[in-house]
Design a protein around this nucleic acid. Structure first.
Lengths: 155, 155
DNA sequence: CTAGAGCTTTGAGCGCGCTCCAAGGCAAGC
DNA sequence: GCTTGCCTTGGAGCGCGCTCAAAGCTCTAG
């Protein structure tokens, strides 16, 4: 199944969030396209559309631990890459670095912190929803302006 | 017609962007709830959910000109408020201050710059759409995590 | 009349999230 | 062997968008 297709399924599933497909679809989305060999900092950066600087920065501030090869070069195993996928996803949706640091510290403290992690995620979910609502309004306002300027309507 | 209702109509209209309702609905959305007396900086700040500091800053950097009353206090007329509504909408959807300055300078240069303004708006529309897409993916990822933690599914 | 809150200005300060610099090591090609 | 380019580290620098400080004026309540 192609990534695009999975993505579309996932997006569809959001419309009906009770669908048991969500977990399955995302399990595959998340694990797809990750080579199971260790990756270099540049490779991961390309994968995440980030800069190597940023990945090193995330490591420095304790968001992730990364192994080194015999020469001292970073080697990102699958778990590390998966964590970075999650981290960048959260960053892209506006979660502050500070919160991510807290989240990661909760993960490090073990299963007992699952309720607090869950609480964070629920709050963040609301934040994302608010953002989407705001953006939708901004999109409408932009469409409106475009219309007043006689621009093309949306395709 | 209540603002909430207008808003819903507007959101619906986005689904079918060719609808001639968009302009009408937003005309009313934009002009609704604006008292036609001049407003103080604090009043406008409350209206826009911004700080007076921010409004003064926008003025300082040339995004808007604001009248003064006999005592030297800022008085925002309807046009000024409407411009600020637009500016904050664009800011909320991530348009950089620098671009807004350019846009405003185009407005100041008159009707001849309409094509370039239109171009900016079309580009920004795409940017907003990309953001919404990104946020939708982040929302899905968050839902997924919530599900793995056994949290409630979306209401 | 006076206290206190809010307004004015210019200029400086700050939090965030990178982003880059300097000095040096490792790997691959000529 | 040497060059070229990416890697390492710690620390410094930076762009953005506010946000606040200082010094002084104005309005309102008591």
């Amino acid at each position: 199944m192609a990534t695009e297709e999975l993505l579309q399924k996932a997006l569809d599933a959001i419309g009906e969030p009770d669908s048991p497909l969500i977990k399955e679809v995302f399990d595959r989305l998340v694990t797809t396209d990750l080579p199971d060999r260790p990756m270099s900092v540049q490779e991961v950066a390309d994968l995440l559309d980030a800069s190597p600087h940023t990945l090193r920065y995330y490591e420095r501030i304790g968001l992730i631990e990364v192994d080194r090869d015999a020469s001292g070069y970073r080697t990102y195993d699958t778990d590390a890459v998966r964590r970075l996928v999650f981290l960048t996803r959260m960053r892209l949706s506006g979660m502050p670095i500070r919160d991510l640091q807290h989240y990661v510290s909760l993960v490090d403290q073990g299963e007992g912190t699952v309720p607090e992690r869950l609480e964070m995620l629920l709050e963040h979910r609301d934040t994302i929803r608010r953002q989407i609502r705001q953006l939708t309004l901004s999109l409408a306002a932009t469409e409106y302006k475009i219309a007043t300027y006689g621009g093309e309507t949306a395709p």
